[in-house]
Design a protein around this nucleic acid. Structure first.
Lengths: 185, 185
DNA sequence: ACGTTGGTGTACCATCTGGTACATGATCAG
DNA sequence: CTGATCATGTACCAGATGGTACACCAACGT
């Protein structure tokens, strides 16, 4: 264990905590205590409080993009089934803390919080790109895919917000099923 | 000017400020300074800091619901035009600060912030209800309206998030137009 | 005229905040 | 072994925070 990369371990633990409890009004000292270390260590490894938040935000961005990599597009599946698989994957309760954190960072970035300025620049494009690519791989014409991608992203995020707030799995799943039926009639 | 209801005036001014600048990591003293008063006054009129945030959140909820009242459903219009009018209304830049604040409160409520616990209970239902009522008034069958309402809410909020982040009016409007075409084909 | 009520200002408190100077200890290269 | 590097711990700082005690004053009912 020469280099356990303590910084990375601290970062992972920190994200787990803020994903569960939020990052608003969170002090370095409180976070450090929750992580079993001291605020002195967080300052040391991340430079400052802003450095800490910046690192967290970057990791949140990275995890968001990684969501796509977890998905293996099986070309033998129907388009409907790929969409269903995608929704089942992204709406899994194990991802809820990450998604709560995603929306919190999103909202704070909308208010020009210092550490989150760059978050918005790719928050839409970085999803539309892979979506279109996936759709094209499934045989959807490029212009059609582009037309649906932005709307599909809105549906996904809107229904996620709904699910996180109401936890009404049946109703939200039904709405997604309705969406899938609408675009693959 | 016997009772200018200084509390309500302070609350309105406070909401204008937090809508523009966010409420995370905002201290009573900073807010008071921005409002031209002292933190002593905010404590006096709202009881405590939590009382202040609670009052703000309740007002945000109230304003959200009031969005529907601004809309006059003209039964001579086509369903498409009503939807377009609704989107033009709710996506107007003058409402952006309120909507940024709405999403910030939403995100913080997802993390069980003390003053925002009750925010989530009606955040979906309170929109679906009026939506269904409006759709029925336009002649849409009740079960169809219910089926579309939840999905339509997700589309609206998802595209609002997109618009607030990218400010790409043309692309987001096109996506909404695509949605309207999908459900009114 | 008088007392009451309630908005406002001043001043203070204990606590917490982010940051840092300094010391200690562990690991590793030479 | 020795020196260097880096993670960690202790202790402190100046500033900000939420809250509050107290005094003051204007408006009001009587």
């Amino acid at each position: 264990m020469h280099k356990p990369d303590v910084r990375q371990e601290l970062l992972n633990a920190a994200i787990d905590f803020v994903a569960e409890h939020g990052l608003a009004d969170l002090s370095l000292r409180r976070l450090a205590t929750e992580l079993g270390t001291s605020h002195r260590m967080l300052s040391h490894h991340f430079g400052s409080k802003d450095g800490m938040w910046t690192a967290i935000v970057k990791e949140v961005e990275r995890r968001q993009l990684a969501t796509f990599e977890d998905l293996e597009p099986d070309l033998s599946m129907s388009l409907q089934d790929v969409l269903r698989m995608w929704w089942r994957h992204i709406s899994d309760p194990s991802l809820w803390p990450n998604e709560r954190l995603f929306f919190e960072v999103y909202a704070q970035a909308l208010h020009n919080r210092p550490a989150m300025n760059e978050f918005l620049t790719d928050v839409v494009e970085s999803w539309i790109g892979p979506s279109v690519k996936l759709a094209e791989a499934m045989g959807v014409p490029p212009d059609t895919a582009t037309k649906y991608a932005r709307l599909g992203l809105a549906v996904t995020r809107g229904l996620l917000l709904d699910l996180l707030a109401t936890q009404d799995r049946a109703a939200v799943d039904a709405a997604m099923e309705h969406w899938i039926a609408l675009i693959t009639d």
